[in-house]
Design a protein around this nucleic acid. Structure first.
Lengths: 254, 254
DNA sequence: GATACACCTTTACGCAGCGTCAATGTCAAC
DNA sequence: GTTGACATTGACGCTGCGTAAAGGTGTATC
C-alpha cells in the first residue's frame, strides 16, 4: 500500500504539515519521491510513524524520538516495554495530582489546614520526579538508597491521600446506610443513595465498573461472613439490606 | 507573609522568569511594587499562583487560565471539581494508550493482526475527544446523542482492549493452575507462578494491591460457591488449591 | 568610601512543534 | 482550457518560558 501525504495524514490523524516537518527534520523520510516531487510513503513508513506518534504522545522530544527510531540496533519490543513503563509512571503522576486536588477541595470545604509550603508539595514532588527520570540512573548508582527512599515516600503519600478519601467515603456510606435501614425499604431514596455511594467507593478499587460485578459483590456481602460481620456490626441485617438496595440500584435481580 | 520573586518562586517551584512572565501577561500581578521597583507578593497571590499551577498542570493554556482566575464570579470549588474531572479524563486517555501499547507488544510477539487503520485508533480517538472537550457543549446542544454515542464507543473499545488482555491472562492462569494441581503441592514453583499470575490479573481490577486483600480474596474463592464452581469446573479442589498457593505466596496464613 | 555579592529590574533573542498563509506546480475530470 | 483538489517550498507566527545582556539596589565587609 502506498500513501501520499494527505492519505497518510488522515490515516494517522496528523496534518500534512506535520509530515512535511518530520521529513524536514529527518525523522520520517518518504519511501520515495515521484516524478513530480510528491512524497510517497510505504508500509515501513506507516509503522515508523506509529512509533513516532507513540513516543510523541509520551512527551518525548522529536530529537529523542529521532535517536530512538533511527538507531540501527533498535529493539522495538524493548522500546515499547520501556514506553509502557513511562506511561504507567505518568499515570502515577496524575494520580498524585488528583490527590492534591482532592485535598484542596477538602480545604475549601473547611476542615483541613494547609500551609503555604504544603500547597506546593505536589508540584515540587513532580519536579523531583522529573529530575529523577532524567538523571535517575546516575543518581541511583551514586546515591543508591536515598533515591529509592524518596520514591517510596511519594508512594506512601499517594496511597495515604487516596486512603483518606476512601475512608471518608466509607464513613459516609455507613452513616447513610444506617439512616436508610430505619426506613426498612431498600428501594427508598436514602437506600439508593447509599448504593450510589457504594458504587463510588468501589470505583476507587476497580478500573472497570459493571452492574453485574457490583451486584455480584453485594451478594458476597451476604454470603461471606467477614463482610457480613462488618456491615452488621451496628445493626444486624444491614448487609442484606445493602445487598437488596444494590440489586435494585443495578437493576439486577439474579 | 510577603514574598519577593525568588522567595515565591522557590516556594512554588517555578522560576523568577515565570513569575515575571505571569506579571507581563497579566495573569498574576504582584500585590505591590516597592520603592525600588521590586515585585512584592502577598497571601492572595500565593493562593492564586497555586490555582494557576493547577490548571497549567492540566495543559490548560495560560490564556484560558487567565479567563478562569480573573473571572469575578469565580467559584473556586466548582472550578476545582471541574479540574478534577479533566484529570480523570486524562487518566482514562492514558489508560487507553497503555492498552494500545500492550496490543502492539502482543503484535510484535506474534499472534494478533492489526490493520493500518487499527494502529492509529488510539490516536484518532484521542483527537476526537480533544475536539469534544473544546466544542463539547455546543456540539452536545446541537447534536445531542451523536456525541454521547461516540463517547460510549470509545469506552467500549477501551474495555475491549483491556478485556482481551485480561482474558488471555485468565486463560494462562487456568492452564498453569491445572498443571500445578497435578503436583498437589501449593508451595511448588508452578503453583507459586499461578499465584503470581493471579496477582497480575488482579492488578487489572485493583488500583492498589495489598497482600492482605489478595489473601482475603483467595479465601472468598473457597467461601463463595460461585467462585468455587468456576475454579473447580475442570477439577474439584482447584479453588482450595489456589487459595493455599496464594496464602503461601502472600505469606498470609490467617 | 570602595568593593563585593546576592538580589532585583527591563529588553531581547532563542527554542520546539507545528499552524497558517502565500505563491506555485500537477493531475484528473469535464 | 478551465476547474478543483491535490502537491510543493518558503516564510512568519504562536506559547511558555530559558537564557543572556546590561544595569540598578541592599547589605556586609574591608
Amino acid at each position: 500500500m502506498e500513501y501520499t501525504v494527505q492519505k497518510l495524514g488522515s490515516l494517522a490523524g496528523v496534518s500534512t504539515r506535520t509530515l512535511r516537518y518530520y521529513d524536514e527534520i529527518g525523522i520520517l523520510k518518504p519511501a520515495r519521491i515521484n516524478s513530480s516531487g510528491y512524497r510517497i510513503y510505504g508500509q515501513k513508513e506507516v509503522d515508523r510513524l506509529q512509533q513516532i506518534l507513540f513516543y510523541r504522545e509520551l512527551g518525548v522530544s522529536l530529537d529523542r524520538i529521532k535517536e530512538i527510531v533511527t538507531s540501527p540496533s533498535f529493539d522495538g519490543a524493548a522500546a515499547l516495554r520501556e514506553h509502557r513503563e513511562k506511561l504507567l509512571e505518568k499515570k502515577e503522576q496524575l494520580e498524585l495530582l488528583i490527590a492534591n486536588v482532592d485535598k484542596t477541595i477538602a480545604l475549601t470545604e473547611g476542615r483541613m489546614e494547609m500551609s503555604d509550603k504544603e500547597k506546593f508539595e505536589g508540584f515540587k514532588k513532580k519536579m523531583i520526579d522529573e529530575n529523577e527520570e532524567k538523571y535517575g540512573k546516575e543518581i541511583r548508582q551514586k546515591y543508591g538508597d536515598d533515591t529509592v527512599d524518596k520514591s517510596n515516600a511519594k508512594l506512601q503519600n499517594m496511597t495515604q491521600a487516596q486512603h483518606d478519601e476512601v475512608t471518608a467515603l466509607a464513613e459516609q456510606i455507613t452513616v447513610t446506610l444506617a439512616e436508610a435501614f430505619k426506613t426498612g425499604d431498600p428501594a427508598d431514596e436514602l437506600a439508593q443513595k447509599a448504593a450510589e455511594l457504594h458504587k463510588q467507593w468501589l470505583c476507587y478499587y476497580w478500573n472497570e465498573y459493571s452492574k453485574e460485578a457490583h451486584a455480584g459483590l453485594a451478594q458476597v456481602y451476604v454470603d461471606d461472613e467477614r463482610f457480613t460481620a462488618y456491615y452488621d456490626k451496628e445493626q444486624p441485617g444491614t448487609a442484606a439490606f445493602l445487598k437488596d438496595a444494590i440489586h435494585i440500584y443495578t437493576g439486577m435481580k439474579r
